[in-house]
Design a protein around this nucleic acid. Structure first.
Length: 886
RNA sequence: AGGCCCGUAGCUCAGUUGGUUAGAGCGCUACGUUGACAUCGUAGAGGUCAGCGGUUCGAGUCCGCUCGGGCCUACCA
């Protein structure tokens, strides 16, 4: 089949993907004898469209999956989507509001709203599926999962029940992070901090105290003043009770307590304690048995307890209250200071800490069997990384992970939204409670109205996706039975790699470890590969407001193809590091794809009419041997880089091996008839090219597959074997000889360029081979063509007006006439100087006894060889200068 | 306040356990290109590896400090 002028990505990519999918190339077999390689795709939210964050995730996971599949593993990549509770519900509510339904929760009711959200999700999941396909993801669509699938929901309920019975889940009234906008609690990890450089800090006259606060309105709910037990300033007040009448009411009664947690250095050293609206204050209040007075409601407005301020928003109240204090002379000071405001990562609204009865996971209770011991969730989290059961890439992220564990508190898992897994708990009256996946199945029970944190179900993702859906229909099976009888779980879990952004290390990665070790007794994955953020060329987050530097993956796939997008996101990218993607990079990616396409055209031409089935090991010409050995050396290097998770590096190695060695050197060399006509050249060219095609495939799957098929190679590249390394060190004399030939060509070209020889002018060269003589002579036609020589003699004669080059393997001379004499002398002197400098360097090292004694023998031997080589070079240069009459 | 990362060519970044003359892409300069090349090729310029000190026969690489930049975490009210 004739190659088209260019790779027509728009029509070909979709067609190639269809063929892969139809051929079953993505499907993994749980009964296979091959070692498993498993990746759970981090489920993209079932809202919106694919962005570059998804793209990098898909590209990295796909290249790992394709690589391991070719390398002989039973590779399974499980795709799926997440119901993304808060994100989805708020998106749909906003849409409904735009349609004119002011308060969809009230207008539609729970059942109808959930139905509408599900409908919306179903639609956008279709969009995401096609976009994941568009990028070339070779995931097993038959195993596609969704966090709300029946068997996944079953797992959620089962785990909840198990944790409840083990006392790891409890319900309690505690300070929680309340988002008044979304009307729900959120976990500690869902809080973001925004810098407020000029926040106001007020100091109030507060009975006998001066008390500092950034939120004066909360002082309406104070029930104590806490001071440090050793603080002399306030010692006399400890234990006393004061009634403090605020100017317009209410009057609060405060007790003075001593607590170590108060920092005497901060402010006045006296802390107004607001137990109902501050975490620390709540803890102090608990320790001292202080009363709680909630003054802020869930709507973000002041409660009746706030007296005359009831009904105001917190900010309105602050303003009014401060004005009243000032009028009454109770405002001692107002200054500005930098403060970090807590906001919800989703709604970006300020968080209101308040007290609410919620469900929590206890991270400190020693109730988890792990390695024969009873540990707390926190201890297990620490142990699996400490012991190396789980490896983080890059490794320094482990420090961040441990830091997070150190600060970890009980995880609030209940949410007041409707979209999600409803808490599997039923109540009857005040006393009775039922926990389980089936429900109590009797009259008079009411299910808990809250839903679970979306990360609760995501935390089960590596294994809940592997539970057999049919099996899960049997409601009588317990969790351990579901696990023990699911073939996919048995074959593919623990998964091999979790690849995701470092920004969700805590949200998700840590939670998966926490839940999975507990629920299955296994780690969820062996390795966590964390990629960085994709930024624009200036290192800033891409936004639609900066279209000139913003890149949309869908546009790129349409305009350039998926391959250029993929390769340009991988080359130069490394784990844990943010990556700047620019139009220039995409351009370079496109050029690479184009280069590969054109090389294929030439290879096909070279290979025309030759024979199939030639064993590469039987090749004899040095140039052909050289490229075969080189290609396999690249394989060896790439294997090492891939295994070390250095995918960008691996891609770069493939790129440069292909471009410089295969294209610029080999393909140019075999254009000479002496080689082109050699039957084995067809075998060598196609063998080496196939090696590069295979190496490239995980990175740029579409164009490589298209070439593979157009060249009539057997089967599909996606299922081809990863190339071996057996010929990596073969034919070293030939390989070194051709290396010398290439250096000779480069030397001759340099002479031409430096001496301003017309590009078209053919010159006469004379060469004396000092090593690899046979090989170099065998390559004479190649040298003549690549250096554009009229004639090449091997007598080594140096005419009077020649310009020369010396190398350990050869001396070369090009006769350019007398005019170049002086320039030649100059050049030789420079080269001699350089050789002498290097000789002095290596001589100094070898003269150093400590070096000879301590350095590794091969290093010392290398230095000796270098010294010998340089001495030879120096001699040649000096001789040549003498001939020139210096 | 604590933790982590980064500082290498004009720009973006590699540089694997310390070991010859520190690399690539893009950009730049000069030249070339009617047959694989929406181009590509050939040759070239360009770096006191942020600074200081230490360990070592040997440091871009290991250790300490300083300066500069970024990120994360926290119950300084």
């Amino acid at each position: 089949m004739a190659f088209s002028k260019h790779f027509e990505h728009q029509e070909r990519e979709a067609e190639i993907y269809r063929r892969w999918e139809e051929s079953g190339a993505f499907k993994a077999d749980a009964r296979s004898e091959k070692p498993p390689f498993t990746i759970s795709m981090p489920p993209p939210n079932a809202t919106g469209t694919l962005h570059l964050g998804h793209a990098i995730m898909l590209v990295l996971e796909d290249l790992m999956t394709r690589w391991r599949r070719m390398a002989g593993d039973e590779a399974l990549w499980v795709p799926g989507t997440d119901h993304a509770a808060i994100a989805t519900e708020s998106v749909v509510i906003r849409l409904l509001q735009k349609e004119g339904i002011a308060d969809p929760r009230i207008a539609l009711g729970r059942e109808e709203l959930v139905r509408r959200i599900a409908e919306y999700v179903e639609k956008s999941r279709g969009t995401i599926r096609s976009q994941v396909r568009g990028i070339g993801a070779s995931c097993d669509w038959e195993r596609e999962r969704y966090t709300m699938d029946a068997q996944l929901s079953r797992c959620v309920a089962e785990v909840f029940g198990k944790m409840f019975r083990d006392g790891l889940i409890y319900r309690g009234a505690r300070i929680v992070n309340w988002d008044p906008g979304l009307q729900t609690t959120i976990s500690d990890d869902e809080i973001e901090h925004v810098e407020q450089p000029h926040a106001k800090f007020y100091t109030l006259r507060y009975g006998p105290f001066l008390v500092g606060t950034s939120r004066p309105e909360t002082k309406l709910g104070d029930t104590a003043v806490a001071v440090h037990p050793d603080d002399e300033r306030w010692k006399e007040h400890i234990g006393k009770v004061y009634d403090i009448p605020w100017p317009k009411g209410p009057t609060i009664r405060i007790r003075v307590v001593a607590d170590e947690r108060v920092d005497p250095e901060f402010g006045t050293g006296a802390l107004g304690v607001t137990p109902a609206h501050s975490q620390l204050d709540f803890e102090i209040a608990e320790a001292h048995g202080l009363p709680l007075i909630p003054i802020i409601g869930e709507d973000g407005r002041m409660l009746p307890a706030a007296g005359p301020y009831a009904g105001l928003t917190t900010l309105e109240c602050r303003e009014a209250f401060v004005a009243d204090l000032e009028a009454a002379g109770l405002l001692a000071e107002v200054k500005t200071y930098p403060q970090r405001l807590s906001i919800c990562y989703r709604s970006k609204q300020a968080i209101e800490p308040l007290i609410k009865a919620q469900w929590f996971i206890d991270v400190n209770k020693p109730a988890v069997r792990w390695k024969g011991k009873l540990m707390s969730l926190r201890q297990v989290l620490r142990d699996v990384v400490d012991s190396g059961d789980i490896q983080l890439v890059p490794k320094h992220q482990e420090a961040t992970y441990f830091h997070w564990i150190d600060n970890l508190r009980d995880w609030c898992i209940s949410r007041q939204i409707w979209w999600g897994h409803r808490i599997p708990v039923w109540y009857r009256g005040e006393q009775e409670i039922y926990v389980g996946h089936r429900g109590p199945g009797a009259e008079g029970w009411q299910q808990d109205t809250d839903t679970l944190d979306t990360w609760f179900s995501s935390a089960l993702w590596t294994w809940s996706t592997l539970i057999d859906p049919e099996l899960a229909k049997d409601q009588d099976l317990g969790l351990s039975q579901l696990l023990a009888q699911s073939p996919d779980f048995l074959k593919f879990h623990p998964t091999s790699v979790m690849e995701t952004g470092y920004d969700i290390l805590f949200f998700w990665v840590a939670r998966m470890i926490l839940m999975t070790t507990y629920a299955t007794g296994q780690v969820p994955f062996r390795t966590v590969y964390l990629h960085g953020l994709i930024l624009d060329r200036d290192g800033e987050k891409m936004t639609k407001s900066k279209p000139e530097t913003s890149i949309d993956p869908l546009d790129t796939i349409r305009d350039l193809g998926a391959d250029p997008l993929r390769i340009s996101m991988v080359i130069g990218n490394s784990a844990g590091t943010d990556f700047r993607l620019s139009a220039e990079r995409l351009e370079a990616g496109k050029h690479l794809v184009n280069k590969l396409w054109n090389a294929a055209k030439l290879v096909e031409k070279i290979a025309q009419g030759g024979e199939d089935g030639v064993d590469p090991a039987s090749i004899t010409h040095p140039v052909n041997r050289w490229i075969v050995a080189r290609a396999h050396r690249v394989v060896d290097v790439v294997n090492g880089r891939m295994a070390a998770w250095s995918f960008g590096d691996a891609a770069e190695q493939i790129r440069s091996g292909f471009w410089s060695e295969f294209c610029d050197e080999y393909l140019e060399a075999v254009k000479v008839p002496e080689l082109a006509d050699l039957p084995e050249t067809r075998a060598a060219a196609r063998h080496a090219f196939d090696v590069f095609l295979k190496l490239f495939h995980p990175f740029i799957p579409f164009v490589t597959e298209e070439i593979w098929q157009q060249l009539g190679r057997p089967g599909m590249l996606i299922r081809a074997d990863w190339p071996g390394t057996e010929l990596r060190d073969a034919w070293s004399e030939d390989v070194d000889g051709v290396d010398a030939v290439l250096r000779l060509v480069a030397a001759l070209r340099r002479i031409r360029s430096e001496s301003r020889v017309e590009p078209k002018a053919q010159v006469a060269a004379s060469v004396r081979a000092l090593a690899f003589t046979d090989r170099m002579k065998a390559c004479e036609p190649v040298i003549r063509k690549m250096a554009n020589l009229e004639s090449l003699s091997w007598d080594g004669a140096v005419p009077a007006g020649a310009v020369t080059a010396v190398d350990p393997a050869f001396q070369a001379a090009v006769d350019l006439g007398e005019a170049n004499r002086e320039a030649e002398r100059e050049r030789l002197r420079k080269e001699l100087e350089d050789a002498e400098r290097r000789l002095a360097n290596v001589g100094k090292r070898l003269a150093n006894e400590a070096f000879v004694r301590n350095a590794k023998p091969e290093i010392v031997e290398g230095a000796r060889a270098e010294e010998r080589e340089l001495q030879g070079l120096k001699g040649t240069l000096e001789e040549r200068l003498r001939e020139l009459g210096v």
